[in-house]
Design a protein around this nucleic acid. Structure first.
Lengths: 224, 224, 224, 224
DNA sequence: CATGAATGAGTGTTCATTCAT
DNA sequence: CATGAATGAACACTCATTCAT
């Protein structure tokens, strides 16, 4: 506002605001959806938290449903798209690819607030049938598709055994699901849980699965 | 009224209804809460589904909150109370007791619609702070308390190793949690999942845990 | 209940209850109407306060309006009827009659809870047009009629001057009205008012009026 | 917006409405409260009478209670505030001040619909305990405070005798109260009353009181 | 583009009244 | 006669959505 301010980090304040609006709106919406639920989140509060008026919010997202879908897309679908790029660009072993995908996902979704979004969806989805379809198309299907390709790549390259691909995909997803629920549940119940280190957990799970997947049997230590 | 009348069977329509009303109302409420969520469930619909008028519903449960709490008590707390009786009456080995508790819980909660209730609570709980407290007091704490007693019984009787009781309790609860989420998620995503037989899963989990718990069974070191 | 109880003051408990029901119902209703207002008084509470069930209340008074009208009749009209008897039986001077009427009214209405009823009516009457008519017919008109007769008696007997009767009636009613409002207002406002002794006030008012009414001028004390 | 625009007259329909809305809403509310009572007045009717929707009414007054309090403040407290200004600015005799205050009050409250508000409060107040406190704080106390200051001013300036101030305040309020009740009652009872001209009545009352208050005028005992 | 005043359908809750027992 | 379970119309209040400015 003040002209004397060094123009360092903030370029053309007005233009920049406009460019960042959707981001800010989605962030505010994500936060409220997670903390208050879908029904209890008021459009007015989303607008206020983002620092704009109600009308402006509707300028970007014409309805509450659209807003929610945009949040899902931004915080869940986006990561899958990135994962897809990772897949396309990856050149090394498929095991390594899996590690990197898991790491990316955990950093962007699992460890952040976005994981609350998944729990929310799981509970509200029964009430909003078209949301279910949307979630299926935008998140579930792409995820499965990506993982299928990863597994198939491993099999084709002779790194993995030729197992049933669908089953393997589910085996990959299950521990993730568990992790999300576990975190939500323990945070809510305020129980001091078995100290479950998520990153350790993920690493272990993947290692276990890879052992089961890889075609060259690990030299099982029969010495001990 | 007349002493000759058999005091059982059908105590006249009006009276009979009154006795069954709470049951019918809770059942209708459970169904709607699970399928539409807490906020989206209308009191009028609960009443209609139970075959009564809105006013009647309020005759039994003076507010939506009270109704929800009653549902939680009826479908979640109740089973814990029964588990407690099972504990008090049980005379055999603690391992067997654990099996029976798990079986009871699965029959009454896990396999039934009630499991959806748990997912619902986990997601809505952030929006309703006092509900969290209620759930903690009515469900979480009693569950932990019961399981603690079971583990301690096993340790006192020399059946189990003297492990940290809290950790063991969490180890018992974790797979249960996983199961619930898994079912919810796969049912929602309409994916053809890895055919996970829940009863098999529970049995396996408990067996694994018991192996870890029991003090004698595995003649690893017969010295002690 | 106990058979050993001496049958002294309570004759046939069951029969007596039935005979006294209306009394008890009206008393409970009066109390609630005054303390909670017309709209805020629930029929169920009236029944409960009278120690009967809601159904029984409706057995005696088929609607809330009827109940209120019955209360008005019992606590306001009744006194006028008695005043009328007083009038018919009275043999002495009309001034004395007026004193006795005022005394009766004050004892039965003004000093008791019933005075709150008048304030209530004055405020609620605008909302219930037929109540206005009822009040006019049952209370206002008879009161005026009775007072007219008293004044006319005084004039006919040569005790009072031949003033305009209607004006005199109003002159009699005004201070009464003032008293009721004053009491209500000061009780509500919790102000420690000019210590206004009601009985003294009434006596003074009547004395003043009588001075103005009586045909034989009082020997005004010019000596002092 | 443009500097050339005259900053007065009609600031565009939207804006102008917003400025006038509270006035219009309070007027509609006052009318309905007086004619139907507090409980019987529906928020929707208030809105409709003011020519807006229910939602708009709630935009300005977040609850029925708040609306009622705003009405009391606008139509009763406001006049006291003005009276206070009158007091501060007045330079002449205290007797004259009293006349002007009485006149103001009568023009703004007594003769207008607002007087019905006072009767309403007196009757509903028993049912709404916090309303009593509000009325006491907002209306009763400031009125007493203002009148105290007036009397004390008169005493300090040697115009009035040094009577007990509280008693004098009550003596001033009493006839006002009487007037309000009288009007309400006669209007309701549809009786052709003693033709009581309110303005005449007030003038007479004040004159009488002033006679009692003033220290010099009546040369009764010139000795002191 | 941005605003925020206005809308009105929808929901939780109350309570006078009815009626089977 | 007495009961109290059942009813449903009515009302306070909320919030997604629209639109004039």
């Amino acid at each position: 506002m003040t002209p004397a301010t060094p123009p360092s980090s903030q370029p053309k304040s007005h233009q920049r605001r406009k460019a960042e609006r959707p981001q800010e709106l989605l962030e505010a919406a994500l936060h409220l959806f997670i903390h208050k639920g879908l029904a209890a989140t008021r459009m007015e509060d989303v607008a206020k938290d983002a620092g704009v008026s109600k009308g402006t919010l509707y300028l970007y997202y014409p309805s509450k449903d659209d807003l929610f879908k945009a949040v899902v897309q931004a915080y869940l679908s986006e990561v899958i798209v990135e994962g897809s790029s990772l897949f396309d660009l990856h050149e090394g072993s498929t095991s390594e690819l899996l590690y990197r995908l898991a790491q990316t996902w955990w950093t962007r979704v699992g460890s952040a607030k976005a994981s609350g979004l998944i729990v929310l969806i799981m509970s509200e989805i029964t009430a909003y049938p078209d949301l279910a379809q949307f979630y299926l198309n935008e998140v579930v299907a792409p995820t499965h598709f990506l993982l299928r390709r990863v597994i198939e790549r491993g099999i084709e390259r002779g790194e993995f055994r030729a197992l049933d691909v669908t089953s393997v995909v589910h085996a990959l997803i299950s521990p993730i699901q568990f992790l999300i629920t576990y975190r939500q549940c323990t945070s809510v119940c305020a129980v001091n849980p078995v100290p479950l280190d998520p990153e350790q957990f993920i690493a272990t799970q993947i290692e276990l699965l890879l052992r089961g997947l890889e075609s060259r049997p690990h030299p099982v230590d029969g010495t001990t």
